[in-house]
Amino acid sequence: MKEQFEPVIVAFCCHYCAYTAADMAGSQRLVYPPNVKIIRVPCSGKVDSIHILKAFEKGADGVYVAGCLDGDCHFKNGNDKASRKVAQMMRYLEEIGIEPERLEMVKMSAGMGERFARIATEMTEKIRKLGPSPIKAAAA
């Protein structure tokens, strides 16, 4: 059964970096797994705890927030705020009983199409190994 498991991964992508990098990956014809569902946000700092939690609650197996490289946030420090929020939510997931590794903060620039594709692939592989989220597993 586990071999056939196709994880659902939600990626909150900042408009100024990761979202553009995803575009770049597309125009470079780089292949990345279709498991990753992109949600464009105006800044990674705009992603709220509740957005991350609702993604898991509604059935995501993995979630990542993708913001600009350190010091490069379009809005000064939204990416730092996002990192702290993600760290906090990782601790909360642990309390809930969901593996914190299912959540990640990543950083890239708008030109890093290759990095975008690589992260999408790595995240998909990591979650595939972890298996379905405990919430999905319980519902099955």
Binding site: D48, S49, I50, L53, K54, F56, E57, Y92, E95, I96, G97, I98, P134, I135, A137, A138, A139
Partner: peptide, 19 residues
């Protein structure tokens, strides 16, 4: 309001994962 939402989601997921 925000923390209420976060707690509600956490409680819900704790239950969901126990079926």
């Amino acid at each position: 309001r925000k923390e209420v939402g976060v707690l509600a989601s956490g409680l819900q997921m704790s239950r969901l994962k126990d079926g």
